[in-house]
Design a protein around this nucleic acid. Sequence first.
RNA 1: GGUCGCGUAGCUCAAUUGGUUAGAGCACCGCCCUGUCACGGCGGGGGUUGCGAGUUCGAGCCUCGUCGCGACCGCCA
Length: 594
Amino acid sequence: MNSYRTHHCAELRKSHIGQKVTLSGWVSSRRDHGGLVFVDLRDREGLTQIVLDPHSLPAAHDLRSEFVIRIEGEVVGRPEGTVNLKLSTGEIEIKATQLDVLNRSETPPYPLDEEHVNEDLRLQYRYLDLRRAEMAHNLKLRHRVCKTIRDYLDEQGFLEIETPILFKSTPEGAREYLVPSRANPGLFYALPQSPQQFKQLLMVAGAEKYFQLARCFRDEDLRADRQPEFTQVDLEMSFIEREDIYRLIEGLLQRIWKTSIDHEVKLPLERITFQQAMNSYGTDKPDRRLGMELYDFTETFKASSFKVFASVVAAGGVVKAMNAKGFACATQGQIDHLTEQAKAAGAKGLAWIKAEGGTWKSPIVKFFNDAEKEALTRGLKIEEGDLILFAADQWQPACEVLGKLRLVIAGMLQKMGKLTVPKGVYDFFWVVDFPLIHFDSEAQRYMASHHPFTAPIPEDLSLLEKEPTKVRGQHYDIVLNGVELGGGSIRIHQPEVQKKLFEEVFKIPKEIAETRFGYLIRALGFGAPPHGGIALGLDRLVAILCGAESIRDVIAFPKNARAQDLMTGSPAEVESKQLRELRIQTEIKALAAS
RNA sequence: GGUCGCGUAGCUCAAUUGGUUAGAGCACCGCCCUGUCACGGCGGGGGUUGCGAGUUCGAGCCUCGUCGCGACCGCCA
């Protein structure tokens, strides 16, 4: 025990009454009554009320917010009627006999207990922001989760192995951060988007079970749940099948939820196919808590006199609909907004029906016959006050349009108080049987849906040449409350299969495939074991556990939406000497000079 | 790159149809106060309304531009 503290500020209870204690911390608030001063003393763990008598401790009058002080005193019970039930330490207080100001503080630029402060300011003074109880709690919970992950995976026989941060550019995926090499002028490293290739090489190396809390870097535009650097729980195993991954990760999630928030996750988790997810929710990461499933009416409208629907069906498309329960009150403005959203998602327009005032109000209902109306009423369980929305297109675009509207409408209904997402519900499930390959209309070639190392499902292998988009991959995503928590796959371990995909399916020129992935294919040729793995987004996972809106709230020093650190002022210019050493010239300087 | 929203005191916000000297709470400074916990009372300081143009007799408010921040779309194998 050192001279600063005998206890922390959330520790003392009635049972400590009479003890002489020393506490150190920050002045959270001060209530100066002239002849008596109360201070809420805060440290990482919590608050304790200090009572100071300014007659013996005159410095008590000079205390201000965020001063760092040390207090000696006696734990006393609070007088009758002054107990504060909001504080865990609210039954006691410290009668100070000694006050030392360890450090003064500038007036804080914003009140630390204020909820809705400009995020700029919070980020600029992040060290103050992190003093707030909520942020301190988030950091603690994140630590608890990391510790649980390490303990669990250690028990399961995993080795924590670090992989390089200075890696090589592999422009197949996300845009990368580049790092110039002074020793090799004109050449660049790239920061890894993920340790994907290294973890596969570790399997070839016989590591068998690898994991890492891996920092990953992507130079893409940011979102509330996207940072330029973020952390993945990255792992890979040899001699395993998909079922082994499911079992392992389910156990891990169960343990994390138990140790961090004492919530029981029931196992095994449900599995749905990509096909089912799209069909029922129009997305591969559905938030099933919202209800509002999509239904198919292709058969109903096959021969409809409503030509818009009938012609889509004739062209091999589908007619899908969803019931936005209780949203018949949607204003014209809201309908217009939904139509815009639908168009942005690729629809040509938006057909809708309002069940209102005992009748159906809709621009299209006049084309429907009784059988069609009956099918809709039954299939969508239409009741007074409902809003029905349609999408007619090829299967996937039709699903996606309604999937997007479903989320927009859920947001609107929540604002109106007509839809409440239940709290404390954690809807985990696996999404499986993803298509291995999709056709990218922009690049005019087939692309890997996940990444190019994903193994096909063996029975689909024969389709690879003729109908590549029908091949399913041994890929799996774990979804929680509409958030993609992570994903992974069984990898290709035969070099000839990997080569075939690169060169014949993805049409990556031989030389490029060689320089980009040659070492990996070569490694696979030296007895690579069957292997697979998964990566979980740690920031998102912790954010959900904390109930945080943004992953910025669970990262100690995050960047803003422009990828800047407002506290340190990075990124920043560098000395021209540094650039010369790297043999780098920037266009910006040339532009400024001209 | 695009769409939308926001920008007024240190912080959170207000300011009627475009109308006099831009207000309030908290914070800050001074004085008073022995049971507060959002302590209270009295007094005080604090503003280039993000910036720049324009319209107008007159702009925090309208228009254009610009900068900053945020959300979303694109992007994120």
